[in-house]
Nucleic acid binder design. Structure first.
Lengths: 260, 260
DNA sequence: ATCGGACATTGATCTAGCGCAATGAAGAGC
DNA sequence: GCTCTTCATTGCGCTAGATCAATGTCCGAT
């Protein structure tokens, strides 16, 4: 797989979708300096504090960004899904470490070469700027989810976010006789850290939602969403439900969580 | 006060600090298209969903970004302090409404004129890109604070964040015989929404921290931080304390919360 | 000065979620 | 096959925090 293949194949996703619209010669230039890396699960590709000289695009799999607290605990602060970009440009050290949550493939670009292309191409530069704006919105959406006072509500919000982000991502979102199935890319313990709770509480919250008929738990890492409306209601944001249920999503960045 | 005055006077802050280093003619150009607006407390200057055709720089006061939930509740998702930028460029509608938490002054730029300058000036463009990167980091720091399972911990983290962000901002951070005083720019109810708790719990958490000698509550909106280390410990991030206690902060974006 | 409203605090009760411990379930290595 | 390890689940006592209600405090308007 080359980078050009990926941009064409992954054209459903935010960043890479936009990349596909770049002039062909620019994509060729990107193709020349990029390198495909296979990551095994658990592999760490960036450490906080030390300068990371690569910019990466996720092609397959899920990565998680996490902060290592002084006491050694890992604190998940975000997920990267295919189409996402990570790494620093024109800038200092990484704030977080990045670890492959599943087996994954990423395209990496030497930072300086990438920056040179950025400087030379206003179109690419503009794309990165828009991408970062989208990322800010996503992170603020996270804040809204996290500030739900109840664990059930936060979990419901998390599931809704997975829905919007995993839409069209191969293998992450399926449908079982009309119902939406979501694969949960991280463990209960990590989810607990992410949602400000304990693993036991997360487990209980999952089963509480199941008891209320909102979800079915096929496996710990695979759930069926039976009632998006109820989940959105639980999360405190009916509008999220509408957005997900709307089949023909318009281009990203319309409603709160409508961005892919 | 002109925009040029502001960039010189506010040179301690992130975005405007960098602006001050722009070529003089570019700042003149910005000066020409900008307009100073006085905001009274509670004034709303941006509504979610509708396109906002202004880009703004905060010169004085505190603004809060908030999401209006379907049930009418307001959900604070971030604060803007002097030196911060808001608004959209090359892009769709605002995701959140912005409201003046205190009396405030902002410089506003017509969006299209600003975008034209952005396109014409790689330096300004680069500055905005870096600014957004910083903003992403800040929002992720928020996530870490919000995912603290205890209200006390989240409140402590919030106070620490105010410390780092208010550093050098006139009137927001003072010192009383060696102790750091912080002014709390939002009400208990808003703080409760922001931190995923109830106003009563926030009030109790404040007084619990006071009982433990970590803070003194002068007025509901003014507290003295007696022990940064203990607060940082409570927040779960000893490193935050070190960063604040270090008098000569290096340039922004070094440690977790060292960015101003 | 007095009234009214917004906001902060305090008290009392009740429940959600923590914390610890024990028990399953699934995969890796031998 | 087996054991060992890791992860998810379940039970139970206990605390933090939600919830409801009352009181206090400040400020602006009359």
């Amino acid at each position: 797989m080359t980078f050009l293949d990926a941009t064409n194949r992954l054209c459903a996703f935010s960043m890479i979708a936009d990349l596909a619209e770049l002039p062909h010669d620019l994509r060729e230039a990107l193709n020349k300096i990029c390198q495909l890396r296979h990551l095994r699960q658990g592999q760490v590709i960036a450490h906080p504090g030390e300068p990371h000289d690569l910019v990466g695009f996720v092609a397959e799999g899920i990565l998680r960004m996490q902060k290592t607290l002084p006491d050694g605990r890992q604190h998940v602060v975000g997920l990267l899904v295919p189409g996402d970009v990570y790494g620093r440009v024109f800038d200092g050290a990484m704030q977080f470490s990045i670890e492959a949550a599943t087996e994954a493939k990423v395209f990496v670009f030497p930072r300086h070469a990438f920056e040179a292309l950025l400087s030379a191409s206003p179109a690419l530069d503009r794309l990165m700027l828009l991408h970062f704006l989208t990322e800010i919105d996503r992170t603020r959406d996270w804040m809204v989810i996290l500030s739900n006072p109840k664990v059930r509500g936060r979990l419901a919000g998390f599931l809704m976010m997975l829905c919007t982000r995993f839409r069209n991502i191969e293998g992450m979102l399926g449908s079982m006789n009309g119902m939406l199935t979501v694969s949960i890319p991280i463990s209960r313990a990590d989810l607990a850290h992410l949602l400000g709770a304990r693993a036991e509480s997360i487990s209980r919250a999952f089963h509480a939602l199941a008891d209320d008929g909102m979800i079915d738990i096929i496996r710990p890492d695979l759930v069926v969403l039976r009632s998006i409306e109820d989940l959105a209601d639980e999360a405190g944001e009916p509008e999220m439900g509408e957005a997900i249920l709307t089949e023909d999503l318009p281009s990203h960045r319309i409603g709160s969580l409508r961005r892919l």
